[in-house]
Amino acid sequence: MASETTTPRSFQEIILRLQAYWAARGCAMLQPYDMEVGAGTFHPATTLRALGSKEWTASYVQPSRRPTDGRYGDSPNRWQHYYQYQVIIKPSPPDLQELYLGSLEAIGIDMKMHDIRFVEDDWESPTLGAWGLGWEVWCDGMEVSQFTYFQQVGGHDCHPVSGELTYGLERLAMYVLGYDDGNEMPFNDPQSPIPLTYGDVFREAEAQYARWNFDVADTDTLLQHFKDAEAECARILEQPADDPKTGRRIVMAQPAYDQCIKASHVFNLLDARGVISVTERQAYIGRVRALAKACADAFVQTDAGGYAA
């Protein structure tokens, strides 16, 4: 580990080092989920795989979108599109804290120089009907990760318990690379023939999305999308488990869950458009949670969810 405590030179090097570190510890290197999500937890590799009795381990980068965080690319530390690095191991190993600290060393944080603290932070996702206990991890007073032992997902008790680590990559990278303005930090190696900063890559798109998210997105269309996703999710789950064409048992938990993800993102967009009142908010969150629960119920009826015929 000590050999790795050189400082990375770029945002992508931090990602590469995390990938290498967790791959070496046996995680399946997954790729981002191909849908718009609010956080890495929404990836079915976390939400669905945390359910049921089967062992599981994965890590991946997840581009995530929070429309209300858009600042037209002007903020040094807020973007409506950002990256999370996600690790999930089920059952949580007894040395998960040590493994996690090793990953910080791997990206150049020297434990002898820094103050690392595990500060109580109980995680809850009202839209996923999920909660867990754990900490936010502080490095010199800054939150660099979320560390959670899942207790419930989609209303189901987690057995065994998954350990989930979520790194906020931009904030972590700004700290490790020493930048106050995230847009200025190098995305690729600054010595490359064509050096690019984080801002070079994303600033323009941030402005475009901020305008669309806040002022242009058609709310009637979005409301319809929400209803459609909700209806499709229900319709998928209403299908009998036995497929009449193949004669096989195929419970379509993940296609249904895609619709749940879609509904959740549309809700976030509607929220950013400011058309959801405080009281309606709770109702929408409840509707997405109902979908998440139904999908969780379906997933435990699948082979991957530990269903045994």
Binding site: P91, Q151, G163
Partner: peptide, 16 residues
């Protein structure tokens, strides 16, 4: 006030 399970066990403690 709040406790949790971890790994494959069923013992509850505040953290592992």
């Amino acid at each position: 006030p709040k406790s949790m399970r971890w790994g494959s066990g069923s013992l509850r403690w505040v953290r592992p």
